[in-house]
């Protein structure tokens, strides 16, 4: 059997759902950041698959995936720096302890 666009979309949605589940349920901030990386990867898989199956002559989808990769790298750097700053000043990394903005 040959591979179709649907196969790649199933993989992308699977990764996305696992990432959403992790982001909703993990207790530690680092676990949530990891889940967000999984969501970014699901988007990248979909972009590359659409590029290959629907627009095989161009590389626009791959260029977008590269941009997303760069933004994800920046996001994780800033996120981890923020988590490190919170950990230094409050000694906490679990989400239920970091609710000072709840009012």
């Amino acid at each position: 059997m040959t591979l179709t666009l649907g196969h790649y979309l199933f993989l992308g949605s699977g990764l996305f759902i696992i990432g959403i589940f992790g982001a909703l349920t993990r207790r530690s901030v680092i676990g949530i950041l990891m889940s967000i990386e999984l969501i970014f990867n699901a988007a990248n898989v979909n972009l590359a698959a659409f590029n290959r199956f629907l627009h095989p002559d161009g590389v626009t989808g791959q260029a977008f995936a590269l941009f997303i990769m760069t933004v994800a790298a920046a996001e994780v750097v800033v996120g981890l720096a923020l988590v490190l700053a919170i950990y230094r000043s409050r000694d906490k990394i679990y989400m239920e302890d970091i609710n000072i903005m709840r009012g």
Binding site: T4, L5, G6, L9, G12, S13, F16, R52, L54, P56
Partner: peptide, 13 residues
């Protein structure tokens, strides 16, 4: 997502 992806099962490269 399942319903959306199922619609694309006929698109081959």
């Amino acid at each position: 997502l399942w319903r959306a992806a199922k619609a694309c099962l006929s698109a081959t490269a």
